[in-house]
Design a protein around this nucleic acid. Structure first.
Ligand SMILES: Cc1cc2nc3c(=O)[nH]c(=O)nc-3n(C[C@H](O)[C@H](O)[C@H](O)COP(=O)(O)OP(=O)(O)OC[C@H]3O[C@@H](n4cnc5c(N)ncnc54)[C@H](O)[C@@H]3O)c2cc1C
Length: 581
DNA sequence: CATTGGTTGTAGCA
DNA sequence: TGCTACAACCAATG
């Protein structure tokens, strides 16, 4: 804040606008706000756009309420407090800036997702006449995303290894340093305190913003940085750091009954804390590094725990480079154009989507995952793989944006860049293209949990099925169904799709779509592009396959919407939202 | 060009 | 529990 403008009286009243970054540890925004300030007014704005629109499910809203209460406590311990505004940011921010005499506004960058991008532009515009100085800081990601964007010359990076070299360059340039937590924070201005005294700025309770959960009992993972840091440290202390050091993501299990318990084979479940910024990714990074220094066996990215943080960074950087189209297939330069079924135009697809969402596909493993999502807001990464594959390329062939929208509502950790990126991955739309590797809605869960304890927990009507049929109850003889007290087709649905048939058919469609992509891509005016089909086989071992090339598998209506296939990508000049910083 | 590597597949068989 | 065939992807690298 050095060299900032001052008011006539020389007072420096700073509005510290919290959006994500709900913490006081390692907070560049908080540090920037405090520097030289005579008053700091920490605000959070409850925007009806996400509070009461139905876009955000109750579990995530509850987490937010808990996180705000915790942040308020952290601020109070340092002589401050959280002031909560109710209304549209582009109305509330300029209002309080004016009424409270703010000379500066500070916030942490949150300009990747379309909501944040538009919101911040609107607030800037609304505040422009006030002449306040607006400062943006990094904080939500390890690197400043604009630095990563520079490193890639404005292009999206779609491979992890390339991303890693860029990341290493940026970190070499600006090392990962933690920002100290201020011991005291200047109190809010008198005008702000006066408004607070009128009872207008109180921190919302769970009952206020997630009324359906008001009496739901304790949360599985309560929001807030206190909880975040406790959980982080507990994970890092497991086996003296050996657990964290040897972490290998693909070897963790999606079927743990208590993924938050001691000795779990699950993952850290820190995602919601990172999403809201209750936990700084840099703090995670640094403490992880320290905790695993002496570890006997150390895994490495992409499977290691620091590798997981890099995946997050990877998707953020890519989404930042692509812009708002990252959340959709159309006009998205990195996304394969595929003729998915669209529920709005296709009643059968709409019904399939609804069954998937409600956890009544007739596949117990899929339904258990979806019911865990609905009831708890979190699923293991591999469970997300299973249900995302099932909805899109594996079985239902519904477009991935529909699944992403459901996740965006129901996940406690829903995070625009990460969510859409992973949906593109699973649907083979970008990043990952081996569509012939397909998850089985029967075999995959069984591999981890042969007894079906996870299914029995989340799909209780199946609880009494014998182990043999727990993943495919429709195959149980009627006598077994009666004995289990659950008749398939009556008490639990029959499968809505036949996996072996559908998955093969879908692979054919993916192959078609890829072919169309390649042709439209090898254009260069040559019209009949390359066509060098030759023995495109090659691949591992050099074992030449037989002449399986016979005929293309089923050729249903070739993907209708091949229209948009724009290629250019840049995005550098148009909207870069960094200012004085 | 050809080759290599890519977080996390499955079924069938030893 | 470990191996291979399956069918045949892509981006990066040289
Ligand atoms: C279809 C699909 C949608 C997803 N949507 C989201 C989402 O909305 N929000 C979200 O945070 N994660 C999402 N993920 C990624 C991943 O599943 C979760 O981050 C992870 O399961 C959270 O559990 P954890 O904190 O125990 O992870 P850990 O394995 O303990 O990893 C630690 C942290 O690394 C980050 N991370 C881990 N895996 C990934 C990944 N694949 N991509 C990006 N970051 C990762 C997360 O911040 C996570 O908290 C999605 C994955 C899929 C397949």
């Amino acid at each position: 804040m050095a060299g900032s403008t001052k008011t006539a009286r020389g007072a420096m009243v700073v509005l510290l606008w919290y959006r994500k970054g709900l913490r006081v540890h390692d907070s560049p925004a908080l540090a920037a706000a405090c520097e030289g300030a005579t008053a700091v007014c920490p605000v959070f704005c409850l925007d009806p756009w996400f509070v009461s629109s139905g876009k955000v499910g109750p579990i995530r809203l509850r987490f937010l309420a808990e996180a705000l209460a915790d942040l308020d406590a952290s601020l109070r311990a340092r002589g401050s407090r959280l002031l909560v505004l109710h209304g549209k940011p582009e109305e509330e921010l300029p209002r309080v800036a004016r009424e409270w005499g703010a000379t500066h506004i500070v916030w942490e960058k949150d300009g990747v997702e379309p909501y944040g991008l538009k919101r911040d532009a609107a607030v800037r515009e609304a505040c422009a006449p006030l002449g306040v100085t607006i400062t943006e800081t990094n904080g939500h990601t390890i690197c400043d995303l604009d630095e990563l964007l520079k490193q890639s010359k404005g292009s999206p990076v779609t491979t992890y290894s390339t991303f890693r070299t860029h990341f290493d360059h940026v970190v070499a340039r600006s090392p990962i340093v933690l920002t100290p937590t201020p011991e005291r924070i200047p109190a809010p201005s008198d005008a702000a305190l006066a408004e607070e005294a009128r009872g207008r700025l109180s921190v919302p309770s769970v009952a206020d913003i997630a009324p359906s959960l008001a009496d739901a009992g304790p949360s599985l993972f309560p929001g807030g940085e206190g909880e975040a840091l406790r959980r982080l440290d507990a994970h890092l202390a497991r086996d003296g750091g050996a657990w964290a050091g040897a972490f290998e993501k693909p070897k963790t299990s999606p079927t743990e009954i208590d993924p938050f318990g001691a000795g779990t084979r699950s993952t850290t479940v820190l995602s919601a804390y990172l999403k809201f910024g209750c936990l700084s990714p840099r703090t995670f990074w640094v403490r992880l590094r320290d905790a695993t220094k002496g570890a006997r066996t150390r895994s490495a990215p992409p499977v290691s725990l620091d590798g997981q943080l890099l995946w997050r960074e990877f998707y953020y950087a890519c989404a930042h480079a692509v812009g708002p189209a990252f959340g959709q297939m159309e006009d998205n330069p990195i996304c394969r154009q595929i003729g998915w079924r669209v529920p709005a135009d296709d009643p059968a697809a709409a019904e399939a989507l609804a069954a998937w969402r409600d956890g009544r596909t007739g596949y117990p493993w899929i339904d258990a995952c979806m019911r865990q999502l609905k009831s708890e807001g979190w699923m293991h990464h591999l469970a997300r793989h299973a249900v995302a594959c099932f909805l899109t390329r594996g079985d239902l062939y519904v477009r991935w944006e529909e699944g992403a929208a459901v996740f965006d509502e129901l996940l406690i950790d829903a995070d625009w860049a990460v969510n859409n990126g992973n949906w593109m991955w699973l649907s083979c739309s970008c990043f990952f293209y081996q569509y012939f590797r397909c998850y089985s809605p029967v075999a995959f869960g069984r591999k981890y949990d042969p007894d079906g304890a996870y299914v029995r927990k989340y799909v209780p009507e199946l609880a009494r099925f014998p182990k043999k049929y727990i993943y495919e109850p429709w195959r149980a003889p009627i006598a077994d169904q009666n004995k289990a007290g659950c008749r398939v087709g009556v008490d639990y649905p029959k499968p809505i799709v036949q996996h072996d048939v559908a998955s093969k058919e879908n692979m054919g469609k993916l192959a078609e779509a890829y072919k169309a992509h390649k042709e439209s891509h090898a254009d260069s005016g040559g019209e009949h592009g390359s066509e060098g089909k030759g023995k495109g086989t090659g691949k591992g071992k050099g074992a030449p396959s037989k002449a399986a090339r016979g005929k293309a598998p089923a050729a249903p209506p070739p993907d209708a919407k091949s229209r948009a296939s724009k290629k250019r990508t840049r995005h550098s000049e148009s909207d870069d939202d960094d200012d004085e910083d």
